[in-house]
Amino acid sequence: MTRALPNDAGHEAASEELAELALGVLAGERRTELLQHCEQCVACRRELAELAQGLDALLCVAPAVEPPAGFEARVLAAIAPRRRRRPRLTARARRVLVAAALVLGAGLTGAGLTRALAPPAAARTAALVVHGHGRGEVVVTGERSPLLVVRLQGGNWPAWVSCELVTAAGQRIALGPYAVGPRGGIWSARLAVPATTLDSVRLISADGSVLAWAPLRA
């Protein structure tokens, strides 16, 4: 073991500066040195984690303040151009789309903003029926190419879980496998079939046994 002993001179110097490391106010070189020390030193690693928890708690103390009117709309306008554009658009169509986006961004006030920010049509959430310990839920949001979100919690999940969707017509769609820990995990997938055609979802372990399932019928 190369672990530094608590009476080590390097350890003494490091522990004095751990708070600055946790607070992110340390200059580059010293920061690297300290991080290297923490890799070797269990005591410093533990204290660094505690100091970081202290900082996390302090950040929550700042009171919430509503941002100026139109803030959400401006953020959404800044985010929207980053979304993937459809291929095979002519230059002119692209210009028109950009113009439309600008108008949309500029016009998102009052009722328009309320509409833009209103939650979309109800998505479906189904609790997973788990064979064994643990719990989870499945969310399907969107209609034509819906987003599937699977969230597993607690229990004793295997390292890898595959997902099998069954459509009303009996078609099976395999997804995954996804990395999950014993405490659970979350993953999502964009589906190529409409939400209305889904019948159920099953979660399957590496050995093929069914771990859980949920109904997805509308």
Binding site: P119, T125, A127, V139, L147, V149, R151
Partner: peptide
């Protein structure tokens, strides 16, 4: 089993929102 209807994604947990 239960099938709940929720007004989403506003009602989604943070991790699910981030995944989406």
């Amino acid at each position: 089993w239960t099938v709940r209807r929720a007004s989403l994604p506003g009602g989604l947990p943070d991790e699910a929102l981030l995944a989406a």
